[in-house]
Every structure is written in structure tokens, then in C-alpha cells.
Design a protein around this nucleic acid. Structure first.
Length: 192
DNA sequence: GTGCCGATGATCT
DNA sequence: GATCATCGGCACG
């Protein structure tokens, strides 16, 4: 297995559901003020932009907040959720096609002491990066990374080909307002 | 283990 | 002024 940074071209293909599944098992790193932390991605959700009522870019809605979604695939889309949590997405597809993958959970890989300090709460290691708000907080992700490519010295992803990954597909979380689109099985969870 | 509920603030109407 | 891609604490039992 070759441990290499995944290129931005990985995110610039058309099928956001496929990209969301292929991200499972990969290792995402952040370097925040010299503190290096990383995690294996274990849960993602696909948001298919204009055609997806659950997406912030439904109907090509374009605002200051959603602007990063329209950039070329491979950059971060981050926003404040419920006034408290930063949620971390990766933009996919080509320029002006606002597809995104929400990273919902991870498994701590390196820098656990920094993650514990950022979380500021004593829980078992397996739960440190569980849930999208916790994932971003634990890895030190905030609005500073909005629009930044995921192959910089601040944030990057390492390839980690799984042998036989078992992927559980379910409905996405917290999007009841999306009507029929809330039923789509676009949430992907790595088993174990 | 499950279920309810308040916190909290940017964004959009 | 309402909405919201959430979380942790508390009440169960």
C-alpha cells in the first residue's frame, strides 16, 4: 500500500455518492498552529447540490455562505451550524457544480492529546470525533479553512485503500425539511 | 441503553 | 423573527 496524498482530481469527478464512499477509510490530517492531528474517516454524507432539497445549494442558491460550494472540487466548505458547531464538507465536481461531502465521524489516528484538549471533555477515545460538530472541533477545523484546498500544509488527506470495506448506507441525518430527498440513502458508514 | 430539551448565533426573509 | 446538515446532560429504569 502506498501512503500518498490524494490529489485534488480525486474530488473533481461527477459522482458525489461515489466520492463520499471512497473517502471512507482515508486519513485526514490537520496542522493547526503546529499541532498535527489526524483521523480515519468513518462516516460521510453526499449532498447533490441543485437537485437535492437537503443541500444548501438547492436550486443553485448562491449566497455569501454557500460561495465555496461553487468552487472547483477539492476545497473545504465550512459553516456554523446551530450557532455552535462548525461542520466540515469537501466540495466535489467541477467549477460551478456545488456538490459536497459532509464528513460526519472519524477514528482518532494521531495527536490524541491535542484532540482531547480541543474537545475539553472527558470521554472515551472512540467517541472523540463522533458526530460532525465533534469531528471538526477535535481536528481544530473552523472558518479559517473555508475555501482552502485539502492538499495544503494545513489540511490534507492520505490514501488508505481498504481491502474489503463494508459500507452501511442509510438516510441522512437532520434534514427532515428536505421532503422526499430526506429518504435518499446517501449517508455512508464504515462498519467497525 | 432511549428520549427529551435548551444552548446559541449566522443567515436569510 | 424563524430557521437550522448538532451536542451533552439529565431523566428514566
Amino acid at each position: 500500500m502506498i501512503l500518498s496524498k490524494i490529489p485534488l482530481s480525486f474530488f473533481q469527478t461527477k459522482n458525489v455518492q461515489e466520492i463520499a464512499q471512497n473517502l471512507l477509510g482515508k486519513i485526514i490530517y490537520t496542522n493547526i498552529n503546529g499541532q498535527i492531528t489526524s483521523a480515519m474517516i468513518t462516516e460521510t454524507e453526499a449532498y447533490q447540490g441543485p437537485e437535492d432539497r437537503a443541500s444548501h445549494a438547492y436550486n443553485n442558491k448562491r449566497t455569501v455562505r454557500t460561495e465555496a460550494m461553487y468552487k472547483l472540487g477539492g476545497c473545504c466548505y465550512i459553516y456554523l451550524c446551530y450557532g455552535i458547531h462548525y461542520l466540515f464538507n469537501i466540495v466535489t465536481n467541477v467549477h460551478n457544480i456545488p456538490h459536497t461531502v459532509l464528513i460526519r465521524s472519524g477514528k482518532i489516528h494521531t495527536g490524541i492529546e491535542h484532540v482531547q484538549e480541543r474537545r475539553g471533555i472527558h470521554i472515551q477515545a472512540s467517541k472523540l470525533l463522533q458526530g460532525p460538530g465533534n469531528f471538526a472541533k477535535g481536528l481544530g477545523i473552523n472558518m479559517n479553512l473555508n475555501g482552502v484546498d485539502v492538499n495544503t500544509n494545513h489540511i490534507w488527506i492520505i490514501n488508505n485503500e481498504m481491502q474489503n470495506p463494508t459500507i452501511i448506507k442509510t438516510q441522512r441525518v437532520g434534514i427532515d425539511y428536505a421532503g422526499e430527498d430526506a429518504l435518499l440513502p446517501w449517508r455512508y458508514i464504515l462498519k467497525d
